[in-house]
């Protein structure tokens, strides 16, 4: 299928890296912010131990993204994290790009072995659920539909939350 036939030209590597870095930043801050207001994400995070560190990393040399559970909330740590209790490694730049831009959904990404997970798989499922719940706050339905088997129900004012995320949560990191 066409969508996977990405041709890597010189220079696209740099572009890809910048794109992934940007999306890592958005995802990092958005999930951290949503772990404060979205009850289902809060519940997931509550089941992890305090100080639990999650790292996403694009092999072999980054970009990277880290979170740590601090005071019951998920704190975004940027790319500064050398250790992770749960590590999600993207096997290469293309895989990270496909999942992050987002052309391939999380479950599909697992099925296509695009990531290698190091650590407790139950926590990986929990993290996957968090991101699935977050997606409708980040993207419109026509994109979410492509990424998930089912669009998670949103019980709160979605537009307001989307605006909050993009105008306050992500830029200010709260």
């Amino acid at each position: 299928m066409g969508r996977h036939a990405t041709i890597v030209l010189p220079g696209t590597m740099v572009l890809k890296k910048i794109t992934i870095k940007t999306i890592f930043f958005i995802l990092g801050r958005a999930l951290s912010s949503a772990s404060k207001f979205e009850p289902r994400i809060r519940k997931e995070v509550a089941s992890w131990e305090e100080g639990f560190k999650i790292k996403m990393f694009v092999l072999p040399s980054g970009p990277a993204l880290g979170w740590e559970k601090q005071h019951g909330k998920l704190q975004y740590l940027g790319s500064k994290l050398d250790h992770g209790d749960l590590i999600v490694n993207f096997k290469n730049l293309t895989s990270a790009f496909l999942l992050m831009t987002p052309q391939v959904g999380l479950a599909q990404g697992f099925a296509e072995h695009r990531v290698n997970v190091v650590g407790d798989l139950n926590k990986a499922i929990s993290l996957t659920r968090c991101i699935s719940i977050l997606l409708p706050y980040l993207y419109p339905d026509f994109i979410v539909k492509r990424l998930l088997k089912e669009i998670p129900q949103i019980k709160y004012n979605r537009l307001y939350r989307m605006l909050y995320l993009y105008l306050i949560g992500i830029p200010l990191g709260i």
């Binding site: 479950a107 697992f110 099925a111 139950n122 499922i125 929990s126 998930l148 088997k149 089912e150």
Partner: peptide, 12 residues
């Protein structure tokens, strides 16, 4: 619903 195999099920 916490079991890792759930991710590979066709339907949520």
């Amino acid at each position: 619903i916490d079991d890792p195999s759930i991710i590979f099920n066709p339907k949520e």
